[in-house]
Structure formats: structure tokens, C-alpha cells
Computed example of a mutant assay.
Amino acid sequence: MIAQGVAARMAWARSDLIQRLDRLDEAGRLDLMFEACVETGGSFIPHSPAPGDATFAEIDCLGIYHSGDDMPEAIAGWIKAVRRTLTTSEEAAA
């Protein structure tokens, strides 16, 4: 029973975040995703071209991880991963 409540709250938080991200331009998306990662204990690791630094941009937020060549690509991939997760969860509940 408790696990279902947690899962429902996570699904709501993910859905809410992607709806807010969808309404923003690239700079706004970067800011909001950074804030969401900080607030939820996630990770926001930008790509750095310096030798020895992160090869990819990485996001881990609300239990969903994605990476990309740069942060806008990582955010777009994270949104797609969340949508797939939400769709799978809805299908399983039906």
C-alpha cells in the first residue's frame, strides 16, 4: 500500500516536471532541471570538453537517468525516458 503511494507521487512529480520543462526555452530548461536535481538529491553533470572531465552530460532526477552529448540533449532524452516510464506504468495499471 505504501509502495503504491510512493510510486504515484513519483509519477506525479515526473509528470509535473516534464510539463513545466515543455513550456520553457533551452535556458529555462537548464535552470529548472538543475533546480529539480538539487531539490531531489539528483545529479546534474554538464559535459566538459577539458581532458579528463565528464565525456557526456548526465542527469539523474526522480529516479530516471539519462546522458547526452550536451545538457540540452540529456534533458530531451530524460523527458523521453520519463514519458516511456509513465506510459508503461499506465499500461500496467490498466
Rank of each mutant, 00 (worst) to 15 (best):
L17S: 08
W12K: 14
L24T: 07
R23N: 12
G28N: 10
V6I: 14
A3P: 09
L17W: 04
I2Q: 09
G5I: 03
V6Q: 12
L17V: 04
R14K: 08
Q19C: 11
L21V: 12
D16G: 06
R29P: 09
A13L: 04
I18K: 06
M10S: 08
R9A: 10
A7Y: 01
G28T: 09
R29Y: 11
Q4C: 06
S15D: 01
A11K: 08
Q19R: 14
Q19L: 15
L30I: 14
V6N: 09
L21W: 05
A8Q: 11
A7H: 04
R9Q: 06
G5D: 11
M10G: 01
D25S: 07
L30P: 10
A7N: 03
G28P: 07
A3H: 09
R20Q: 13
G5L: 11
I18C: 05
W12Q: 08
R29G: 12
S15R: 10
W12F: 15
M10W: 11
L17A: 00
A8F: 07
S15A: 08
A3T: 05
A7L: 07
D22C: 01
I2W: 10
L30R: 10
R9H: 09
A27H: 01
I18E: 01
A27N: 02
Q4E: 14
D22Q: 06
A8L: 12
A11F: 05
Q19S: 15
A27F: 01
D16W: 05
L21I: 10
A27Y: 00
D25K: 02
V6S: 11
A27I: 00
D25Y: 06
R14M: 00
E26C: 03
A27Q: 05
R14V: 01
D16T: 02
G28I: 07
R14C: 00
V6C: 03
A7C: 01
M10T: 08
L24G: 07
D22K: 02
D16Q: 02
D31L: 15
A3E: 13
I18P: 03
M10C: 06
W12P: 02
D16Y: 11
I2E: 15
